[in-house]
């Protein structure tokens, strides 16, 4: 262990080393978590389910065999009043009560469902993370006024948490009218306080960590400590929550559509809305409910499985 001040030859050697190792990079925690995720069965199953769902949602509608809104077989359904046309070569999932192709509607519904899930999750995640991040930063390093600000913000999110999500959604729908946007906003707004509290709590926990103290002991500025120390270390529960909340968002959106708050546009049905319509004919045509219901259950399950696997993969206790 020599401590000789580096002379010129050493500097040359350093340059040489820099050149040879330019390509090799460290093994980040994210990459290790990714490795653990790939080894988890639940995670892989969840990811496959989600992949199928996403492919279905993105390209499915282009391959829909029929126009989802066209009542092509209207007469057939009317003639057999009370008797529904089940799956057949032309219509894989059979016909609905208005003589429309169920399979085409299912494919279009997949896209709507994914859209609602992703957009409402993003609304919750982005706004929630901004609120939680600012609040957490203020609480950990903002001194007395920062703590006051944090308390105020958290009381506001408490109030938001206290509102029942369906009631909130109904009121938002009452103001904005009945549309898919309403559903997305309503479901997203409900998620905001959850993300905000999660990130803020995680940041508070990180703020007490020794490496934050060590960074402070080296005179690093507060803003920098928040950005490089506290925030990146607080993200993993938020990422997990985002995945899990996709599942919740899909279910909630279905519930709102079921209550009749979803899009009135018949050419773009959402699985929840399909379920509502099918309900009236459950005695005569149970399969009409089964298709959208199974779709919702399987995608929600996929996101939940992946989310749980990510929670395990990102568990700080496994960091070695």
């Amino acid at each position: 262990m020599s401590l000789v001040t580096p002379n010129t030859s050493k500097i040359d050697r350093l340059a040489e080393l820099t050149a040879t190792h330019e390509s090799s990079s460290g093994n980040s925690l994210w990459r290790e978590a990714w490795g653990r995720l790939r080894r988890s069965k639940a995670g892989v199953i969840g990811a496959v389910v989600i992949a199928v769902f996403v492919v279905l949602a993105v390209v499915g509608p282009w391959f829909a065999p029929h126009n989802p809104a066209a009542q092509i077989w209207r007469d057939e359904v009317l003639i057999n009043k009370g008797e529904f046309v089940g799956p057949r070569g032309e219509n894989w999932f059979g016909l609905d009560h208005l003589g429309r192709d169920q399979f085409s509607r299912f494919l279009v519904g997949a896209r709507q469902t994914l859209l609602v899930g992703v957009v409402s999750m993003l609304i919750g995640l982005v706004i929630g993370a901004i609120i939680g991040g600012v609040s957490g930063a203020a609480a950990t390093l903002g001194g007395r006024n920062g703590k006051r600000f944090d308390t105020f913000v958290m009381r506001v999110t408490d109030i938001m948490l206290a509102l029942p999500s369906l009631l909130l959604a109904v009121s938002i729908a009452a103001v904005l009218g009945q549309s898919l946007t309403t559903v997305m906003i309503a479901v997203g707004v409900v998620q905001i306080p959850i993300f905000a509290r999660l990130l803020r709590g995680s940041m508070l926990a990180q703020g007490n960590k020794e490496y934050v103290l060590a960074a402070r002991s080296l005179g690093i500025r507060k803003r920098r400590i928040v950005m490089t120390n506290i925030l990146p270390n607080s993200l993993s529960p938020v990422i997990v929550q985002a995945t899990l909340s996709l599942a919740t968002a899909i279910i909630e959106a279905a519930a709102l559509s079921y209550l009749g708050l979803g899009s009135p546009d018949q050419s773009a049905p959402e699985w929840g809305a399909m379920l509502t319509q099918a309900q009236r004919f459950f005695d005569n045509a149970p399969m009409m409910s089964v298709y959208p219901a199974v779709g919702i259950i399987i995608t929600a399950l996929g996101f939940t499985l992946l989310g749980e696997a990510m929670r395990e993969a990102l568990d700080p206790k496994l960091r070695g």
């Binding site: 080296l218 005179g219 490089t228």
Partner: peptide, 25 residues
Amino acid sequence: LRDMRGSQLAMIFQDPLSSLNPVVP
């Protein structure tokens, strides 16, 4: 003090693993 810390005064902590930020090289 913040300007002094790291430049005039510095500190070494007990547990080196927990004193380093785990997500940054």
